[in-house]
């Protein structure tokens, strides 16, 4: 497949062989979405970077300096001179930012491990079923992915709250009540619950495609079922493990809804920090600086994820 852009032998004039300045009609088709993403995805990031170097002022919009195009080149020079790293310096001085940063990484990392432990057996079990059952189970995993994130998180509030359904069930069987809502435990439950489909789908995709013959061969060579799982199935499923882990870890680091609704006042996460700085404190430069730091942290996993996706597409 020509995913990487290698021209197909059938049409040697496509791709590389084309004289410069004569894009194919397919390349021209991509102009519109390319332009859209440049304007509404790329440019906004440059603005975040710029704003993170600005200062807070009491005005609308609440930051300075603002670039005055009518002042021409001197205006631009003044503008650049007025930029500084104050927002970052404040971040370095305030221990709360560092705590939120580390705690976000911890939440995302621990939740990813739990997701693997919960998602792998589920995906593995699904792959072992008959094809018709598999299809139904696959649908059942995909359906929550389509259902509102907010609603699924909300559903947990009714379960976990002090006078909620969990404590009601515990009282029925004579156990003491637990106080989970607004704690870190609730955030972990929410993260694992909301991201489970994102973990199961890539795992299932690799496990489903594995040849049954491999396991038979392992059994013929004297492997116990556990050995053949550990030495054949698991190593072969590593691309799915990597895809699932990245697909969950990256957005979880910046998660807002779950820590906000299920976590307590002591639950620190960067997504919440950005939200608070922006909406409550109206400190747009600080919100932007936190966003830039978050993005800088996630660049490597995002690039890894893209590489992996491209590789998967090539293998089809």
């Amino acid at each position: 497949m020509s995913v990487t852009g290698a021209p197909r032998p059938r049409r040697p004039w496509k791709g590389l062989g084309r004289p410069r300045g004569q894009p194919s009609s397919e390349a021209r088709a991509a102009y519109a979405p390319f332009l859209w993403l440049a304007v509404f995805f790329l440019v906004p990031f440059l603005l975040v970077a710029k704003l993170s170097l600005s200062d807070v002022v009491l005005a609308i919009p609440p930051y300075a300096p603002r670039l005055d195009w009518s002042a021409g080149l001197p205006g631009l020079i003044d503008f650049v001179r007025a930029l500084d790293f104050e927002a970052y310096a404040r971040m370095g001085q305030d221990g709360l930012y560092l705590a939120a940063y580390l705690s976000s990484l911890k939440f995302a990392a621990v939740a990813t491990v739990i997701l693997l432990l919960v998602g792998y057996p589920l995906a593995y079990g699904m792959a072992k079923c008959r094809p018709s059952v598999r299809q139904a189970l696959l649908m059942a995993v995909i359906l929550p992915f389509w259902t509102s994130f907010l609603i699924r998180v909300y559903a947990w509030i009714a379960i976990l709250k002090p006078a909620g359904l969990l404590n009601m069930a515990l009282a029925q069987i004579g156990l003491p009540p637990v106080d989970i809502l607004n704690t870190d435990t609730a955030v972990y439950i929410g993260l694992v619950y909301a991201y489970l489909p994102f973990m199961v789908l890539p795992l299932y995709a690799v496990l489903e495609r594995q040849e049954a013959g491999l396991l038979e061969a392992a059994a013929d060579l004297g492997c116990t079922p556990f050995q053949s799982f550990w030495r054949v199935t698991f190593p072969l499923s590593l691309p799915g493990v990597a895809a699932g882990a990245l697909l969950c870890f990256i957005p979880m680091v910046g998660e807002f809804v779950i820590p906000d609704l299920l976590g307590g006042s002591g639950t620190l996460m960067l997504g919440k920090t950005i939200w608070t700085e922006f909406f409550s404190n109206r400190d747009w430069p600080a919100a932007s600086a936190v966003a830039i730091v978050l993005l800088a942290t996630l660049v490597i996993p995002i690039v890894l994820f893209q590489r992996q996706q491209t590789k998967i597409m090539e293998q089809r």
């Binding site: 995805f41 906004p44 975040v48 957005p251 910046g254 966003a291 996630l298 995002i302 893209q306």
Partner: peptide, 17 residues
């Protein structure tokens, strides 16, 4: 650019837009 928004935290996308 067509992959990044899939995993990018939504707060960043919202803020930048």
């Amino acid at each position: 650019m067509t992959y990044a928004p899939l995993v990018m935290p939504e707060v960043i996308l919202g803020l930048s837009l």
